[in-house]
Design a protein around this nucleic acid. Structure first.
Lengths: 148, 148
DNA sequence: TCTCTATTTTGTAATTATTACAACTTTAAA
DNA sequence: TTTAAAGTTGTAATAATTACAAAATAGAGA
């Protein structure tokens, strides 16, 4: 699941992605996007802020919030609904599933491809209690309203 | 998906479920559990409170919170992570998936059974933008710690 | 290079959902 | 009828997020 490509993504590549999405590659945006691409922990706003703040002492948490919204809207990262209390973010866009440990809260990546059947959770040391499958999109009624 | 059984569930049946779970069938608990069994809208705490309050003027929102936690812990209802901002609840325990409309926020039930393939979203008038599959449980490390 | 304008960042204040907690009420058992 | 445990309630506290306005920055054009 975790490919070396993403961890090694360069600032130039991040910059290219931002420009392609029509966003100025500011230091803050590069930092937030970089953090999400270089880590696989599906961090909260607080985690991202804590990791970046030491290198960027003037960074504001509001900027992290703003930047994440902008990046989400641009489709460069995605937000996850894996716990109701905190927004969590993922910088890895290849389709994949998640396993969340109820004890430690860690989020593990899982392959999404089902052609080879479900992942063998027990081999991965994961014991599944509960599964949640959600699809997001638009319903007929809302698309009708938009069309008008 | 939506079976008539659940909508018609009687107070006696709800009472039985509570007792079986070791919980006293108080008026408040019957009301909250009943609300979740009689509706298919995956309501928030606020929605539940607003629906019950007119009939029970002394009901407190704290009671709704408390009761929902108790019911979840007892496995009589489940909480959903379908949006990060609000807890949402489901009183229908048969395995099923959800479709969330990004415009109106409505939550539709979908069959979970995959033996007949994926649900035909387009036939249902649903246009899917994004899919989120999450498994919840315990990882090897945490189970190791618990064992000690 | 300098100026101007739009964009981005920042800090503070406000908002919102949720939880903590202590007092009050109800229930069931002795 | 008394008593203790369980359940409910209201208020206050907490924590994540958003609103907003001021300050800083970057890029375009003179």
């Amino acid at each position: 699941m975790q490919t070396q490509q993403d961890k090694d993504v360069t600032t130039m590549e991040l910059s290219r992605r931002l420009l392609e999405a029509g966003l100025r590659p500011s230091v803050q945006r590069l930092a937030v996007l970089g953090d999400l691409c270089h880590h696989y922990d599906h961090p909260t706003v607080d985690t991202i802020y804590s990791r970046l703040q030491p290198q960027m002492p003037t960074l504001s948490k509001t900027t992290v919030y703003n930047t994440l919204r902008v990046l989400c809207d641009a489709g460069l990262v995605r937000s996850l609904n894996i716990e109701y209390a905190n927004q969590r973010f993922d910088g890895h866009l290849e389709p994949h599933d998640h396993f969340i440990c109820n004890c430690c809260g860690r989020v593990y990546d899982l392959p999404h491809d089902r052609t080879a059947g479900l992942p063998s959770f027990e081999d991965l040391g994961l014991h599944v209690d509960r599964e949640e499958v959600s699809y997001y999109g638009s319903c007929r009624e809302c698309r009708g309203k938009q069309a008008r």
